[in-house]
Simulated assay, not measured.
Amino acid sequence: MTLRNKILVLVAALAVLAAAAAASVLHAADREDQKNRPRSDGPRVTAGTVSLRPGSGPRIVFRSMAWGPHRDELATVAAGDPAGPRTASGVKCLRFYAAAGTGVCLQAERGTMTDSYRAVILDDRLEERAHYALPGIPTRARVSPDGRWAAWTVFVGGDSYAGTNFSTRTAVLDTRTGQLTASLEEFTAYLNGVEHHSADTNFWGVTFADDDRHFYATMATGGHTYLVRGDLAARTVTSLHPNVECPSLSPDGTRVVYKKRVTGLPADAPWRLYALDLATMAETALAEPRSVDDQVVWQDDHTVAYALAGDYGTDLYTVPADGTGKPSRLLTAGLAPAYLP
């Protein structure tokens, strides 16, 4: 092949590569444009004011997953009409929870090379009161019933609870004083009545009691998980029951609903929802046959809500907390709900 022909082949090849690159960029731009367009069959979302203020009427505030310009924003719907039109706030959260006019929003800050994350404490108008850098990927968030305490969990190694190769960091914040416990590993742990020290100990999934002092959470160590009861004043956690992950305390403080690993289920979907009576330690399997990787939220003293995969990423479902009934879809394209009075 002559030099001239070689040059012509090279020019042609470069032209093909340039065309392919241009097509790829246009395709990506088109996909991004499609993501920002509301789906005709999706929930109706409009911009407006979202309040966490008590007394504003029974409602659900949650992360809206509907495609369109308001995806990932905190949105609200009437509790009596969860499938109705939703109002979007403009505030974006990966995880969220709220109570008594205080919210915690775990956010991503997009960088040129890597993302960083932060926890933002919100007032009842969704205005930032304080923020804290996070050491990993957000996964769980809770606020105590009176709004004083906030907690969050991040992955600092690994990115899934399904396997065993992960590490978490769970922080607890006094929102009144600003005092932050950066990791529950600073607390003294008791396992089966004996003070426990192990480098592999992890905590996640805090849920607060209404006495402004106690909480429940998951402690993992030695390849096992345990329900623990924490004492914020004594700075201790004490094991209560094995094989408990992501507990959620009922409004009356008598039960926790949690995900439990069940022998024989697939390794990537190993959980079923259970309720535990804290007085008797009796377990009851809930009527949800699918694997739920979420920390449920109590709708009331009888029903829990949780997320499962859906067409928009996740949908929210409810099921009775006593083992009766069957699951029901609460709303499409939603995640991380908080029920507000």
Rank of each mutant, 00 (worst) to 15 (best):
Y161S: 09
A99Y: 05
A20F: 03
V297Q: 11
Y161C: 05
A321N: 10
W298A: 00
V319M: 08
A189G: 04
M113W: 11
P43A: 10
E245K: 02
E128G: 01
D115W: 06
P327L: 06
E288A: 10
D200W: 15
G48A: 09
T114H: 07
F215E: 00
G158R: 10
G157I: 01
T2P: 12
K35M: 12
L331Q: 07
L74T: 01
F96A: 03
R142A: 14
A108K: 13
A338P: 04
R261L: 06
M219H: 05
T76S: 12
S183T: 14
A305I: 11
T177M: 15
H197Y: 10
M219F: 10
T318N: 08
A78H: 10
R125V: 01
L52Y: 14
R229Y: 09
T280V: 07
L232T: 14
A78G: 05
A47F: 12
A267N: 07
L74H: 10
G42A: 05
A100M: 09
R4F: 10
S51N: 00
S24E: 07
V45D: 02
A12I: 07
G136T: 01
E32K: 13
G205K: 08
R255L: 05
T218M: 04
A133V: 12
R53Y: 12
A66H: 08
H70G: 00
K326I: 00
T87Y: 09
D231R: 04
G157R: 14
T314V: 03
G323L: 09
V50S: 10
V25L: 13
E73Q: 13
A12K: 00
D72A: 01
V304K: 04
A307N: 08
G223Q: 12
R44V: 12
P341F: 02
V143D: 08
K92T: 11
R142Y: 08
Y339G: 00
G310F: 03
A336I: 02
T175E: 13
T280P: 07
A182L: 06
V120Q: 00
Q34A: 11
G101T: 11
I121E: 11
P138K: 00
T284Y: 03
V9F: 15
C93V: 11
K35G: 03
K259D: 01
T332S: 13
G334H: 14
A21N: 02
D124H: 08
T324L: 02
T181Y: 11
W152E: 11
Y306G: 04
V45N: 01
A321S: 13
P38C: 03
A133Y: 02
D123H: 06
P138D: 03
H241V: 06
H196M: 05
Y317W: 15
P251W: 07
T164C: 00
L330I: 02
R63M: 09
G103L: 02
A333S: 14
A79R: 09
D301G: 14
H70I: 01
A189W: 15
V206K: 05
Y258M: 02
T114V: 07
E109A: 01
